[in-house]
């Protein structure tokens, strides 16, 4: 994907961005998980707007400052990106880890966003201290991980022999980069739940009904802290409904984003 590719470096970390399509600005923050490839969904979005697709430092082959260790490092970098590209009226879409990044951006300022769509985002702690809100995907054998992540695990190519070196590189790098930013506290910021009240752009949650990485109940608790947030359940989908049911997710996103453009 990409009619235009830009790169810039901040504080020793390189950001690569692909821009494609025309029309309203859609900033898509990918799931970032090694066991989810949602690049086809990002491609689909280009039929509906100008899609800005950043690859966060560490998730691609470019340099990453070894001191970068929190999702805020990425959130501030993406706010820089919005300033550089002079973006406004952005439909912000973030999935899973990308949804966490989107929430960390939105609590700082929603001035550039016309709407916010979060697809099975992580990032908050809702249960008690013994509860494992977010499945420990670093501690799950591959088979169980896929079973928790997908309604139909066969959609993800698990046979390493059948994937390209590029895809293997993506998986290995994202497995490491996710740990860089979210190892402990695991995939959340303990303060985020009390700060999402600051999100003032119209916000929509889309959730896979069969998600067992973060369950729909987690999603409902997350959404309940954002005034007016809507919650849409997608059937026959796990943690990546944009991969398993891309049309349903697209429809939900478009009708929401159209209402608030």
């Amino acid at each position: 994907m990409g009619e235009e590719a830009i790169e810039f470096e901040v504080d020793g970390s390189k950001l690569s961005v692909a821009i494609s399509g025309q029309g309203r600005n859609i900033l898509y923050l990918s799931a970032g998980l090694w066991f989810v490839d949602d690049s086809a969904f990002a491609q689909r979005l280009t039929a509906h707007g100008r899609v800005i697709l950043p690859i966060a430092p560490g998730f691609g082959p470019g340099a990453v400052n070894r001191r970068w260790n929190s999702v805020d490092d990425i959130a501030y970098l993406y706010l820089d990106l919005i300033d550089r590209l002079k973006l406004s009226n952005v439909a912000l879409v973030g999935a899973s880890f990308g949804g966490w990044v989107a929430a960390q951006m939105a609590i700082k300022s929603c001035a550039s966003f016309s709407s916010i769509t979060l697809i099975d985002p992580v990032g908050v702690k809702v249960g008690d201290r013994f509860a494992r809100d977010i499945a420990d995907f670093y501690g799950l054998p591959d088979v169980e991980l896929r079973a928790r992540a997908y309604a139909d695990p066969s959609i993800f190519e698990a046979d390493i022999k059948k994937i390209s070196d590029d895809e293997l590189g993506r998986r290995v790098r994202s497995r490491e980069a996710l740990a860089r930013y979210g190892w402990s506290p695991f995939m959340h910021d303990p303060k985020l739940l009390s700060r999402v009240r600051r999100i003032c752009a119209p916000t929509q949650f889309i959730w896979g009904a069969q998600d067992r990485i973060v369950t729909p109940d987690y999603g409902r608790a997350y959404a309940s802290h954002i005034a007016g947030a809507s919650f849409t359940l997608i059937d026959k989908a796990g943690h990546a409904p944009q991969v398993e049911q891309p049309q349903a997710v697209l429809d939900a996103f478009i009708s929401f984003a159209d209402a608030y453009r």
Partner: peptide, 26 residues
């Protein structure tokens, strides 16, 4: 050791982790 605790993320370099994934006994 229970898989996948033998390969914590970041412990091995990206290149080593890719080689290991492609090896006959990952």
């Amino acid at each position: 050791v229970a898989d996948p605790f033998n390969k914590p993320p970041g412990y091995f370099s990206v290149e080593a982790a890719m080689r290991s994934a492609r090896s006959p006994n990952p």
